[in-house]
C-alpha cells in the first residue's frame, strides 16, 4: 500500500499546499514570484510521477523558468508590494467550500489512474495506439497524435502562440533606447507629457 510512488506523491502534494498557503499569506511580491516558481517546479515533479514527462518539461521550463522571469520583469515595472491587505470574504469562502466539496465528492467516481477501460481511453484511442505502430511507425504515440492525427489542431495552437507573441511584441516591444534618444524612463512611461519624443516637436513646428 505504502509504496514509493505514494510517499513521493504525498510529500510533493504537501509541499505544494504549503507553498500555496505561503503565497496567499505573503505581501512582498518578489517572494510571491519566487514561490510561484517553486510551485511550478513541484508540479513538474508531480507530473513526472504521473509519467507525463513531456508535460513536466514544459511545466519546469515555462512555469518555473520563463513565466517567473516575466513576472519579475513585470514587478520591475510596477510596485513590489501588494497595496491592500486582503479581507476575508464570506462569499468567496462559501464558493470555495462548495466547489472544493463537489470536486472531492466527484473524485471517487473518476476512473482509476491508467485504467485501460476508462472512457477517455475508448472510442478512437485504440485505433490511434494501433495506427501509431502500423501507419506512422514511431514509438511515441503522443507525438503521432499531436503531429499527425491531430495535426490540424496543432497548427491552430502554433497560430495561437504566434498571435500571442505578435500581440506582446506590438504592445510592449519598444527598445529601451532607440535612435530618437528615448531614455529608459521614456520607454517605461511613454505617455507622460515630458517624455514625449523631442523629434516630434521639431518635425511638427
Amino acid at each position: 500500500m505504502l509504496d514509493m510512488v505514494t510517499i513521493v506523491d504525498v510529500v510533493l502534494l504537501a509541499l505544494l499546499s504549503t507553498t500555496a498557503v505561503a503565497i496567499l499569506l505573503m505581501r512582498h511580491l518578489f517572494a510571491v514570484v519566487a514561490l510561484t516558481g517553486a510551485f511550478s517546479l513541484l508540479s513538474a515533479g508531480l507530473l513526472v510521477t504521473l509519467d507525463a514527462v513531456d508535460v513536466a518539461f514544459t511545466e519546469a521550463a515555462v512555469g518555473a523558468g520563463i513565466s517567473t522571469v516575466l513576472m519579475l520583469g513585470t514587478l520591475a515595472l510596477t510596485r513590489r508590494r501588494e497595496s491592500r491587505p486582503p479581507r476575508l470574504s464570506p462569499i468567496g469562502l462559501l464558493v470555495i467550500t462548495i466547489t472544493g466539496g463537489a470536486l472531492i465528492y466527484a473524485t471517487p467516481d473518476m476512473p482509476k489512474f491508467g485504467d485501460p477501460n476508462a472512457p477517455s481511453h475508448q472510442h478512437i484511442i485504440p485505433s490511434y495506439i494501433k495506427g501509431s505502430q502500423d501507419e506512422i511507425g514511431i514509438p511515441n504515440i503522443v507525438t503521432s497524435i499531436l503531429a499527425s492525427y491531430r495535426s490540424f489542431d496543432t497548427l491552430g495552437e502554433v497560430a495561437v502562440i504566434f498571435t500571442a507573441g505578435m500581440g506582446v511584441i506590438i504592445l510592449l516591444g519598444r527598445r529601451r533606447e532607440d535612435e530618437h534618444g528615448y531614455s529608459e524612463d521614456v520607454a517605461a512611461y511613454p505617455l507622460k507629457e515630458q517624455n514625449k519624443p523631442k523629434i516630434n516637436d521639431e518635425t511638427t513646428t
Binding site: V62, V69, L70, V158, I161, G165, G173, A188
Partner: peptide, 20 residues
C-alpha cells in the same frame, strides 16, 4: 515559433525595464 515567441516576449519585458 515557440522558441522565437518566448524570447521575443522576454525581450519585450526586458527592454522596458531599467537595470535594477
Amino acid at each position: 515559433t515557440v522558441a522565437a515567441v518566448m524570447i521575443s516576449i522576454f525581450r519585450a519585458y526586458a527592454g522596458r525595464t531599467r537595470a535594477i
